[in-house]
Design a protein around this nucleic acid. Structure first.
Length: 728
DNA sequence: AGCACGCCGACT
DNA sequence: GTCGGCGTGCTC
């Protein structure tokens, strides 16, 4: 009897199938195989070798091809991914697939690219009268002159564009030898780190003391307190021990400063994994991690699934950041996977932020995380002063109060820079008819369209559809159209009128879409050429503008009344992050928050006492309301082109849950999603909440079985989101 | 996801 | 009579 294997295949329903193993190689879990699936051939991952299959022998088919000799997904990753498949209720085949670079999913060989090197042979050294061309003479001289070290093609190309043509005869004659070697990037540190503060030194020591065991640290450091320096010192120590470090950052392309800082400080093999890489680069860097050549891997969310044979430490920068949660498909949270992975691998996790997520604060309170605090800013910098600006009954110029404009004038006068933060791009969020009151709405979403004045267009920021800016109202034909509300474009325009001599840089997704445009804008900001910066949350993260002394936050009120129970938390994090851009050098910074709710206790606490006090109060509200992190949530979403279809589907799903009575489970809905219509499809959702993780998990498992058997489940697109961050 | 199977309207 | 529309179900 042939041995049997289970193979995970990328398919939304089952995912794991049994096959006959016909290869002379032993079956290894984590290797890629091509298997017949239906009438196609697909690539799957071997999950296990099994003794017996419940599938009738006649149905079992043979593995067609074996791609790898050793596991492409090492055992520890397989364990993590299998766990994640169960935890997030997402098919194993899809989960395993998401851990592989796309070229490997398509069957590309898992080998690092090789590079040719050339050197002069002993035969060449001894020969005296070889007849060579001028170009060949030049090539030989260069090779001889390199002192026996192999020479890369690049430097030969510099000698002659047709270098290979000239070189080949020399190789044939045995004068030049060609070797191949794998290409592994190497980085040389160019600078030394500063002396650590006591707090930094204590933090580094605490982490280093736990290397080789599982421990979780929350590095809570105010902006500018030198969290990155702590990361760098820990990385140095882990490298010294011959282990690898995995560093997760929010969006690497938005933080070139952070990336170059790592490059200046770390010696060894440093690779990136982020969305800006093409498939080949991504594969090469992934393989560097997989083969253990990489000492440090820096990447975005999905890097948490990168194979690291000598993993010694996981660092997550900006651990509160929403981008750590995948918002479609396999909806994992990179922070939670990191904790699970570190526990399995017995290595520490270091989570850094100025504004911890409530989940992490809760974990500190519960004793699961050790808190490391950095309370002082580096150098002479002191924390900026924060103040609320009551704009009720005040004269506003394009949404900005006179006091705000005065403050900008004052800071500019003293040679400072001002940042105006408004988390809305475009000119105005709404176009209203003055006669009939109708707003210009998106035809595919339940949303107003945003006015983009510069391009004379209306755009929907939810589905991306756009149309020409109408000159008359769609509903009544009136020409009295009002652009209501403010976006970065309008604010920039207004400030330019107010400060005609001043150079203003607008930094949002629209103004930085073109390649290199973001760098160009950031350069203008850093050099001090631009004196006023207007931008969205793109400006909130990680940037360091030396001359910036004033931060103005225009629309803080929006977060106070969000639809989501996390709106307040996110608003506070955003305000603190933006505020942190001010006064990072000698001049003390100031932060002004415009509001129509100056008496709001949450806003007051945040501004007067800071994030920590704010979080304490906001979290006690969460506890009373039994919301996460004091309970566990999952969201079942459904969307269909017919609203009744999506709702009906969820009614059936909900019924199956009510029928079962084990543990405490609150089922809310089905209800229309906060924005019911999006991109022309109707969305409904079912919210599950429990005080026990296991109850929630069990309910979801049952729910999956029910859905699989549900006729018509395929007419509607559905998904399960465990621990959702946005209830949209 | 694909891909076949199967059951009803327009056509050579 | 047949061609082909896409709703439904399966893939070890």
């Amino acid at each position: 009897m042939n041995p049997l294997v289970q193979v995970a295949v990328k398919t939304p329903v089952y995912g794991v199938f049994d096959y006959r193993w016909k290869s002379p190689l032993p079956a290894v879990a984590g290797t890629r195989v091509t298997v017949p699936f239906g009438r196609r051939q697909v690539i799957g991952i071997v999950v296990a070798a099994i003794e017996h299959s419940d599938v009738p022998a006649a149905k079992l088919r043979a593995v067609h091809k074996v791609h790898d000799e050793k596991a492409i997904l090492p055992e520890d990753l397989m364990t993590l991914l299998k766990w994640a498949s169960r935890y997030y209720h997402y098919p194993l085949g899809e989960v395993l697939g998401s851990a592989l670079p796309s070229l490997l999913r398509k069957g590309h060989a898992a080998t690092l690219a090789e590079r040719e090197y050339f050197r002069s042979t002993p035969q060449d050294e001894s020969s005296t009268d070889v007849r060579v061309t001028v170009v060949q003479k030049r090539l030989l001289d260069h090779l001889r002159g390199s002192g026996g070290r192999p020479v890369a093609p690049d430097s030969l190309r510099a000698l002659s564009p047709r270098w290979r043509h000239s070189l080949e005869p020399l190789i044939e004659q045995g004068l030049v030898a060609c070797d191949t070697a794998i290409e592994v990037p190497r980085n040389e540190a160019a600078e030394q780190g500063p002396t650590l503060s006591d707090e930094q030194a204590r933090a580094v020591e605490a982490v280093n003391a736990k290397l080789g065991t599982f421990a979780s640290f929350l590095l809570r450091g105010v902006t500018g307190s030198g969290k990155t320096e702590v990361y760098l010192r820990c990385i140095e120590e882990v490298s010294r021990r011959g282990l690898q470090v995995l560093v997760l950052v929010p969006e690497i392309s938005l933080t070139p400063q952070l990336m170059s800082r790592f490059e200046r400080r770390i010696s060894g093999c440093l690779v990136n994994l982020h969305s800006g890489l093409n498939d080949t680069e991504r594969l090469q860097n992934w393989l560097c991690a997989y083969e253990g050549h990489a000492d440090v891997v820096i990447g975005t969310r999905s890097s948490i699934l990168a194979p690291m044979p000598r993993l010694g430490l996981i660092i997550i920068d900006e651990e509160h950041d929403g981008s750590l949660k995948q918002q479609d498909g396999f909806r994992y949270h990179a922070r939670d996977l990191a904790l699970m992975r570190a526990r399995n691998r017995q290595c520490p996790v270091l989570l850094g932020t100025a504004t911890p997520s409530f989940e992490s604060i809760h974990n500190v309170t519960a004793g699961r995380f050790v808190e490391l605090a950095l309370t002082r800013r580096a150098g002479d910098a002191v924390a900026p002063t924060m103040g609320l600006l009551d704009i009720r009954r005040r004269k506003l110029i394009e949404g900005m109060s006179d006091r705000l404009l005065d403050a900008i004038r004052e800071h500019l006068g003293r040679g400072g820079q001002a940042l105006v933060f408004i988390n809305r791009r475009g000119f105005a969020p709404t176009l209203l008819c003055n006669d009939c009151g109708a707003a210009a709405d998106c035809r595919r979403c339940d949303a107003h369209m945003t006015v983009h004045a510069r391009h004379n267009r209306l755009r929907c920021h939810h589905c991306g559809s756009e149309r020409a800016l109408p000159s008359v109202c769609d509903s009544c034909g009136s020409a009295e159209l009002d652009r209501v509300g403010y976006g970065t474009e309008r604010i920039t325009e207004a400030l330019q009128i107010e400060f005609p001599e001043i150079d203003i840089a607008r930094i949002d997704r629209d103004s930085t879409r073109r390649k290199g445009a973001l760098e160009a804008q950031l350069n203008r900001a850093n050099s001090g050429e631009a004196r006023i910066l207007v931008g969205t949350q793109m400006l909130a993260k990680g940037h360091h503008f030396p001359k910036l002394t004033l931060v103005c936050i225009l629309d803080a009120d929006r977060g106070l009344f969000g639809t989501d129970f996390r709106s307040l938390e996110h608003m506070a994090q955003l305000i603190v992050q933006v505020a942190g851009r001010a006064g990072r050098e000698k001049q003390r910074g100031a932060v002004l928050v415009q509001t129509r709710n100056p008496d709001n206790p949450m806003l007051q606490t945040l501004v007067k006492e800071g994030y920590e006090s704010f979080a304490e109060i906001a979290m006690s509200d969460r506890r009373l309301a039994e919301l996460p992190p004091f309970s566990f949530m999952a969201l079942v979403r459904a969307e269909a082109s017919d609203a009744r279809e999506a709702h009906g589907f969820l009614v059936q799903v909900a019924d199956s849950l009510h029928a079962n009575k084990s543990g405490r489970l609150d089922v809310m809905g089905p209800a229309p999603a906060p924005m019911e219509r999006l991109g022309g499809r109707y969305r409904a959702q079912l919210l599950l909440q429990s005080n026990l993780r296991s109850t929630l998990n069990d309910s979801l498992s049952r729910l999956c079985t029910v859905i699989d058997q549900l006729p018509g489940a395929r007419r509607c697109r559905w998904s399960i989101d465990v621990d959702p961050v946005d209830l949209f």
